[in-house]
């Protein structure tokens, strides 16, 4: 670790705090723009003016929105996420279990998809123009061209309905053995790997090939270094920055973007919680979820930036 990295981390963490507050406020303001408040939504078709007024009073929503937001923010500085408007339970409790589920699915997907995608991408670059490269390139585009809900539904039809090898639903709370864990997570993980691996494969391939075209790599090739050696020793380190960025963007999808997978496999994760919160206008819950997504995303891209800087000596000055 050199000083520039430490300085960058300190700087980023500072900026991150500010960003988190701004994002939570933006999301709060955005939710305010949506029609209906929590009392109206909870009453649904029964939301007559009197009923809404009564419920608002009872929920303490008659205080203007902005002070409520700041009260929530002040509570947050003391580690208190506040109470959900809808369930009246502490938000920390609501989120904890869901977040754990989401992180578990994200971790397993990452462990499988990142090594797979990067090795395929780099190999494709190494053997650029060969049959292997063509097959990998075409297959990746084909795979992401299929809508995610279709991949998931097709997987359920084949593996759960016809073959009956795997369960159609992925419960997070019924796992007792490793084998069961694999069975429960197999389909969501396969679906998500399909979705995010393609981007990583294509971007890493493109970045490595582009670096190969730079003068110093051409020089290395001219000097008689093998293509393999040039890719691994000269091109890859310089392509690491863009690759890390592509990986970070793909992985950020695993936090908030997995709503389709959560819905089809009935997996209680945090993306569905946020969608529920928006639908019921449960502001403190929306803000808390948004901050978690934002935090995860900012951490990922900070890591990507650090890798960029470390991999390019000229950026370290």
């Amino acid at each position: 670790m050199n000083t520039i990295i430490l300085r960058l981390i300190a700087e980023r963490l500072g900026v991150m705090l500010v960003t988190l507050v701004i994002v939570s406020f933006t999301v709060f303001a955005a939710t305010q723009l949506l029609p209906g408040d929590v009392a109206q939504i909870l009453l649904g078709q029964a939301a007559t003016p009197e009923a809404v007024a009564g419920l608002r009073e009872a929920m303490g929503l008659n205080e203007p929105a902005i002070p409520r937001y700041f009260n929530w923010l002040i509570g947050l500085t003391q580690g208190d996420f506040g109470l959900s408007y809808v369930t009246r339970e502490p938000i920390a409790d609501l989120i904890a279990g869901r977040l754990q589920n989401t992180l578990r699915l994200a971790a397993i997907t990452t462990l499988i998809s990142v090594p797979l995608a990067l090795s395929l991408g780099i190999l494709a670059a190494l053997y650029q123009g060969t049959k292997f490269d063509r097959v990998v390139s075409t297959a990746t585009v084909m795979i992401i061209s299929v809508p995610e809900f279709m991949v998931a539904t097709l997987a359920v039809l084949i593996f759960a309905v016809y073959l009956k090898w795997l369960p159609a639903l992925s419960y997070a709370n019924e796992v007792t053995s490793l084998w069961q864990l694999l069975k429960t997570f197999a389909m969501p993980v396969i679906t998500l790997t399909f979705v995010i691996a393609a981007q990583m494969i294509r971007m890493s391939r493109a970045a490595v090939i582009e670096t190969l075209n730079t003068p110093y790599c051409e020089m290395a090739l001219l000097k008689g270094a093998s293509r393999r050696r040039t890719v691994l020793i000269h091109a890859l380190p310089n392509a690491l920055g863009p690759i890390a960025n592509a990986v970070a963007l793909s992985l950020s999808y695993l936090l908030g973007g997995v709503i389709i997978v959560e819905t089809i496999f009935n997996y209680p994760g945090i993306a569905k919680l946020m969608v529920d919160a928006v639908a019921t206008r449960d502001l403190p819950l929306v803000q808390s979820c948004a901050m978690i997504f934002c935090f995860g995303y900012l951490m990922l891209i900070m890591l990507a930036d650090i890798i960029s800087i470390l991999s390019n000596p000229r950026l370290r000055t």
């Binding site: 900026v15 955005a30 029609p35 946020m274 997504f293 995303y297 900012l298």
Partner: peptide, 21 residues
């Protein structure tokens, strides 16, 4: 930093706000 912050707003929420607005 601005675009990072923007990117971390869920797109579904963003879409809903656009329709409403």
């Amino acid at each position: 930093r601005f675009l990072d912050a923007f990117n971390s707003i869920p797109s579904k929420l963003f879409g809903l706000v656009v329709v409403a607005a």
